[in-house]
Amino acid sequence: MDRTAVPYPFNRSEGLELDDAYRAAQAQPGMIRVQLPFGEPAWLATRYDQARTVLGDRRFSTAEGVTRDAPRLREAHIANGILSMDPPEHTRLRTLVAKAFTARRVEELRPRIREFAENLVDDMVAAGPPADLVEDFALPLPVAVICELLGVPATDRPRFRRWSDDLLSTGGLTAEEFQASFGELRAYLGHLVELHRARPQDDLMSALIAARDEQDRLSETELVDLCAAVLVAGHETTASQIPNFVLVLLGHPEKLAELREREEMIPEAVEELMRFVPLGSGGFLARYATEDVRVGDALVRAGEPVMVAIGAANRDATHFEAPDELRFGRPRQHIGFGHGVHHCLGAQLARAELQEALRVLLFRLPGLHLAGDVEWKTQMLVRGPRTMPIGW
């Protein structure tokens, strides 16, 4: 493999296209070497089989990146909580949270998710068009769900927009500013933990506090950082994908009409849209080989980092027939929620939120259309509209 590193990431912030550089990388043998804005060079996995291997093989470590000059998109270099852990530490923390996100628990939450979605559309209809799909619907829906699940007061929900933006920013903040914002979030959550400790409730935070205080299964720092991870990861990607999915469907009117005629297809449409939309601006979390590992026809030496381009892997022509076509009903083989031990903990919750969001938007707003120019997020780990004016 050529060890000459090329600048990365490839995708532009404006739009949802998959950059042609990924196609070029997939056409080459082995993997290409990339240089992110900060940290050491890394190999880039762009093909489906490569991605599955790197994400699923436990000889690749995320914890190793904590002590290394890990390749990254921002200056600040901090541990990513549970994402920066390997088993068994990762397994211990994941097990504590996983019971809140089981398929059964999510189905119990679905009526509440639908109620949130319906109420938000009620408010948009009452105010009249145009509305901002992001501010008026896509953001408040998952924020309301995750805050209720965790036990965050409704009055405090707006504060998480800035904290989440800061934590997912790849530019605009110095390392000191980034650390200060993260410190504010941790201080807030630490205070909320104390309130829940004094008056336990039927929510995830109280359950985690019980695991901390009664079973001594996690430290106070781990408790706060777990809550932060659940809050941020629990809403930002879904808040981005709702307008992303709507944009893609508006660009495929025949698919939009198909969903309105066959509501039962919405779950499989969500799966295909997860595959089709390259959400990330680039690879996010470096994984270090703890020994020599063969990835397809490439050999990664011990100590070398690999980044995984999930969006490119989901559009790999060697695995998906006509990968650039939107086809509902494909077998569920995408890795939009990751793979392996770090597979998205909230995948079932995200699926339910995306399904209910599409359902209410498609059927309550039959004339749904763009009503102005989309303003895109910039310098963020995830891509999507910052504002998206719509009418109906």
Rank of each mutant, 00 (worst) to 15 (best):
E148S: 08
L149Y: 12
G151P: 13
A154S: 15
T155L: 10
R162Q: 10
D165C: 03
D165P: 07
D165Q: 10
L168I: 10
S169P: 13
G171Y: 10
G172E: 05
T174K: 05
T174Y: 13
E176P: 10
E177N: 07
E177I: 06
F178I: 00
A180W: 09
S181W: 13
F182P: 06
G183F: 11
G183R: 13
G183A: 14
G183E: 14
G183Y: 14
A187Q: 15
A187P: 07
Y188V: 05
G190V: 07
V193I: 15
E194R: 11
H196E: 08
R197C: 00
R197L: 01
M205K: 03
S206E: 03
I209G: 00
I209W: 05
A211F: 11
E214K: 04
D216K: 12
R217I: 07
L218I: 05
L218H: 05
S219K: 04
S219M: 03
T221E: 15
T221L: 11
L223C: 02
D225V: 13
D225K: 12
L226W: 09
A228S: 15
A229Y: 13
V230A: 05
V232I: 14
A233W: 14
G234H: 13
G234E: 11
H235D: 07
T237G: 02
T238D: 04
T238H: 06
T238P: 14
S240G: 05
Q241W: 09
I242N: 02
I242R: 04
N244D: 15
L249C: 01
P253C: 00
L256H: 04
L256W: 13
L256P: 13
E258W: 09
E258D: 10
L259W: 14
E261Y: 12
R262M: 06
E263K: 08
E264N: 06
E264S: 08
M265L: 15
I266W: 09
I266G: 02
E268Y: 09
V270N: 00
E271R: 02
E272Q: 01
E272V: 01
M274G: 03
M274V: 09
R275D: 01
R275I: 04
P278H: 05
